[in-house]
Simulated scan of single mutants.
Amino acid sequence: MDAQGKTVVLFACFGVRPEPWLAAFDQTAPDFDWRVWPDSGAKEEVDYVVVWAQPDGFLRQFPNLRAVLCIGAGVDRILQDSDLPDVPIARMRDAGLTQGMVEFVLARVLHYHRLMPAYEAQQREGVWRQLAAPLAGERTVGILGLGQLGGACATRLAANGFSVRGWSRTPKDLPGVAAFDGPIEVFLEPCEVVVCLLPLTPATRGVLNARTLSHLSGASLINVGRGAHLVEADLIPALDAGHLSNATLDVFATEPLPAGHPFWSDPRITVTPHASALTPPGTAGPTIVANIRRHLAGEALLDLVDRDAGY
């Protein structure tokens, strides 16, 4: 709290332009004292930190910190902090973020479903040949992770007529989605398109690897979870072996993807720069403000992170 008694909120989102966020915050909470790192002012005055991609140990420097609010749905970077303060952490649940992810996943599934990679290859060769695509109900799409984003994507794909399977750590009940919580290898076998939207935890790190990918046959992979879900060295061998036909990767072990990385030049792989669902400040800003007001009123934050579960 500052000298005037205002709640101090620090925006510390590394690699994110603060101006659109500050505009959204100022519209909904002009009564707060908004600060942008590194201009935090007196560190003991900071009540809340809105964070993304913070350095290790960053949050510990604010002795009176009351809570941390992430602008993304994934909080693995926060939880990996070796000196994390014992305060509540809220992940982002925002309609705009969810809509963006649904649009991206639907677009990529339709791209593969309607055989666009084959048509693009034919165009490069100057070949005119019609290819028969199955109906959506004859195409099996598997969604790894049925949380906020995965569940929304699975529901939309089912509404578009696809045969949708969903895998999660605990059983889920979603309309039109066959839910599984058993061995991932068994889940993957019938899938023709696989979408990864798992949270990153010790149990899911490297879940897409040579062994699990070998249970697929000519499938398309869409990874919009975290780069560490995929053992990157196993991807091109899986493509060469025919377990996969194509892959869309939006997340990587090292970001930005280094120049000269083989993924850049492989025509079977589509690279996007962690842009599948950017959090829109216009909708997410008021969501953050409402959550802070809730906490100030003595209520628990919404979308609290379970540190033991890892999300």
Rank of each mutant, 00 (worst) to 15 (best):
L174F: 04
I184R: 07
I222A: 09
V186Q: 15
N209L: 07
C153S: 04
V231D: 15
A154K: 01
T204R: 03
A121R: 10
V194L: 07
K172D: 00
V231R: 15
T212P: 10
H229K: 05
N160Q: 14
L244R: 03
G218D: 13
R226N: 11
D250R: 02
L188S: 02
G227R: 10
L157Y: 06
R205P: 09
W128P: 05
G126Y: 05
N160I: 02
D240Y: 14
L135Q: 14
P202M: 03
Q122L: 01
T204A: 02
V231M: 14
E189T: 13
L235W: 12
D240T: 14
D234H: 15
G161M: 09
A154F: 04
N160M: 13
E232D: 13
L146M: 11
E138N: 13
E138T: 05
G137S: 14
L249P: 09
D234G: 10
V193Y: 14
G242L: 10
P202N: 04
P171G: 00
I236D: 02
E185F: 05
N223P: 06
G145P: 05
T140E: 09
F187M: 00
G206I: 00
P183A: 15
A133R: 11
L146G: 07
G166V: 02
T212I: 06
G218N: 07
I236K: 13
N223Q: 04
D173T: 12
N209R: 06
L244A: 04
G126E: 06
A233I: 03
S163G: 01
H215V: 01
P237W: 10
P190W: 06
A203Q: 15
G166Q: 01
G227Q: 11
R129M: 08
N246K: 07
I222Y: 11
A136S: 14
S217E: 15
L198P: 12
D234K: 11
E189R: 14
V177H: 00
L230M: 09
F162H: 06
V224G: 03
H243S: 12
A179N: 14
E185W: 04
S168R: 02
A210H: 12
G126I: 10
S163T: 12
V195H: 06
A154I: 03
A219K: 08
L235A: 09
